[in-house]
Simulated scan of single mutants.
Amino acid sequence: MQTSKFPSVRALDQLLDDLGASAARRRQLDMVRGELDRALERGALPVGARRSLRRLLEEEALGPYVRLAESGALRHRRVEGGLPPTSEATNEIRRKCVDLLREALGLPALRLGGGEIPLQPAPEAATLSALARQLDQYLTGPMSPAQTRLTAVRALELDTAARSGELVELRTTDLGEDNAAVYVERRPQGGGTVEGEWVETSALTRAALERWLDVRNPRPWAAAEPHGCVEELFAARFDLPAGARVRPVQDASRSECRGDQRHRPRRTAHTGPGCRRCRGPRRGSGGRGVRARRARGGRDASPSARSTDRKLKPALHAAADVEHY
C-alpha cells in the first residue's frame, strides 16, 4: 500500500499494524483507510484531521466521511464507467470498522445510523425441492466438468445450508467414508466461535460427489480388449466414406497386436523384378518398376544419370562425415 502524505493516515497505518485483525477484517479496514485518505485529498474533511489521528476519528470528521463514502464518491475504481453508491452491506461494514478504530484509540463507538442489515428471506421448501429435482435430472445425462462441480456444490448446499465462506473452506479430506457425511466448520457472520459438525449427506449429494470426484481424480487407464470386427472398429474411430473397406494390412496388424500367429503376413524371398513383391513387369518392358528404378538412379538408369551419380557421391559422403563429426 502506498504511503500517504498525511501524518494522520500514516499514524492510522501504524494503528492497523498493531491491531492484529484477521485477514478478512484487515481488508475491510484497509478499505476505510483508503477512503479516508481520498477524502482528505479532496479537502472534504477538517484541516486538523490531516495532522492528528484523533481528529481524523472524531465525529466532526467521520460524519462527512461516511456520507461521502456511501454516495460512492470515494471509490478507488469506477463501476461500469461511474461511481454508484455503495451497498447496504458495505455501508454496515464501514460503520463497524469506524467504531473498531475508535475503540482501538480509546474512543467510544459512534453507532453511526444504518442499523443492522436485514436478513435475506429463507427460500421456500417448494423452491428447494425443485432444485433437487433439477440436480437429479442433471446426473442422469452427460455434463461438462464445470457443470459436474457446480452440481456437487449445489447438492452440498442443500444438505448443509452452509454459507459461501464455509463452502470455500471445504476440502476432500472433510468427506466421510463413501461420502456419507461432510464436516462443516460453522463461521458466524460478524465473528464468533467457529464450531464444526458432521452433516449426513443425501443420496443425491453422494451421487453428485462421486461423479465430481471421478472428474477431479480420474481412475488410472487400463488396456482392454476391443470388441467387434475390424470394420466396426475402424468405422467407429475414423470417418470412412460410404462403401470403404478395411485393407488387409490393417487386419493383419490388428491380428499381430493380439498375438494371432495365423494372420501374420509371410515373408518371401525376393525373386526378381517380376515377382509379386515388386508388383511390376519384367525388366525391359518399360513398366512401373523400371521407371521407379530410373528415378532412383538404379541399374536401369541412363548412362548420363549414372555418371552424374558417381560424381556426386564423394561430395555427399564428405557432407555426411562433416555432419557426423
Score class of each variant (00 low, 15 high):
residue 53 L to Q: 04
residue 54 R to K: 09
residue 54 R to C: 00
residue 56 L to N: 04
residue 57 L to T: 02
residue 57 L to S: 05
residue 58 E to Q: 12
residue 59 E to T: 11
residue 60 E to G: 04
residue 61 A to Q: 03
residue 62 L to R: 04
residue 62 L to Q: 07
residue 62 L to C: 07
residue 62 L to W: 05
residue 63 G to T: 13
residue 63 G to V: 12
residue 64 P to W: 02
residue 64 P to Q: 11
residue 65 Y to R: 03
residue 65 Y to V: 03
residue 66 V to C: 01
residue 66 V to L: 11
residue 68 L to W: 00
residue 69 A to C: 08
residue 69 A to F: 04
residue 70 E to R: 04
residue 70 E to P: 00
residue 73 A to G: 10
residue 74 L to A: 10
residue 75 R to F: 01
residue 75 R to E: 00
residue 76 H to G: 09
residue 76 H to Q: 08
residue 76 H to P: 00
residue 76 H to C: 01
residue 76 H to E: 08
residue 76 H to V: 04
residue 77 R to P: 00
residue 78 R to A: 09
residue 78 R to P: 00
residue 81 G to F: 06
residue 81 G to R: 11
residue 81 G to D: 09
residue 82 G to H: 12
residue 84 P to D: 12
residue 87 S to R: 15
residue 87 S to W: 10
residue 89 A to W: 06
residue 89 A to I: 05
residue 90 T to R: 11
residue 91 N to Q: 15
residue 91 N to T: 06
residue 91 N to S: 14
residue 92 E to P: 00
residue 92 E to D: 11
residue 94 R to N: 11
residue 94 R to P: 02
residue 94 R to T: 05
residue 95 R to E: 03
residue 96 K to H: 08
residue 97 C to N: 08
residue 97 C to Q: 06
residue 97 C to E: 03
residue 100 L to Q: 14
residue 101 L to F: 05
residue 101 L to M: 14
residue 102 R to E: 00
residue 102 R to P: 00
residue 102 R to W: 02
residue 103 E to K: 13
residue 103 E to Y: 02
residue 104 A to L: 04
residue 105 L to T: 04
residue 105 L to N: 01
residue 106 G to C: 05
residue 108 P to C: 04
residue 108 P to G: 06
residue 109 A to S: 13
residue 109 A to G: 09
residue 109 A to Y: 01
residue 110 L to W: 08
residue 110 L to Y: 11
residue 110 L to V: 15
residue 112 L to Y: 11
residue 112 L to V: 06
residue 113 G to Y: 10
residue 114 G to N: 12
residue 114 G to H: 13
residue 114 G to Y: 05
residue 115 G to S: 12
residue 117 I to R: 15
residue 117 I to N: 14
residue 117 I to P: 01
residue 117 I to H: 12
residue 117 I to T: 14
residue 120 Q to N: 13
residue 120 Q to F: 02
residue 120 Q to G: 14
residue 121 P to E: 12
residue 121 P to A: 13
residue 122 A to S: 09
residue 122 A to I: 04
residue 123 P to W: 06
residue 125 A to R: 15
residue 126 A to E: 15
residue 127 T to L: 05
residue 128 L to R: 14
residue 128 L to Y: 06
residue 128 L to C: 12
residue 129 S to T: 14
residue 129 S to W: 10
residue 130 A to I: 06
residue 132 A to Y: 03
residue 132 A to D: 07
residue 132 A to T: 07
residue 133 R to H: 13
residue 134 Q to H: 14
residue 136 D to K: 07
residue 136 D to A: 14
residue 136 D to T: 12
residue 136 D to Q: 15
residue 138 Y to L: 07
residue 139 L to T: 09
residue 139 L to D: 08
residue 140 T to E: 15
residue 140 T to F: 09
residue 140 T to A: 15
residue 140 T to G: 15
residue 141 G to E: 11
residue 141 G to P: 01
residue 141 G to M: 02
residue 142 P to G: 15
residue 142 P to C: 10
residue 142 P to A: 15
residue 142 P to S: 15
residue 142 P to T: 14
residue 143 M to L: 15
residue 143 M to K: 11
residue 144 S to N: 12
residue 144 S to R: 08
residue 145 P to N: 11
residue 145 P to M: 05
residue 146 A to N: 10
residue 146 A to S: 12
residue 147 Q to R: 11
residue 147 Q to C: 03
residue 148 T to E: 03
residue 148 T to M: 07
residue 148 T to L: 03
residue 148 T to I: 04
residue 149 R to M: 05
residue 150 L to H: 08
residue 150 L to C: 05
residue 151 T to E: 06
residue 151 T to M: 10
residue 151 T to S: 14
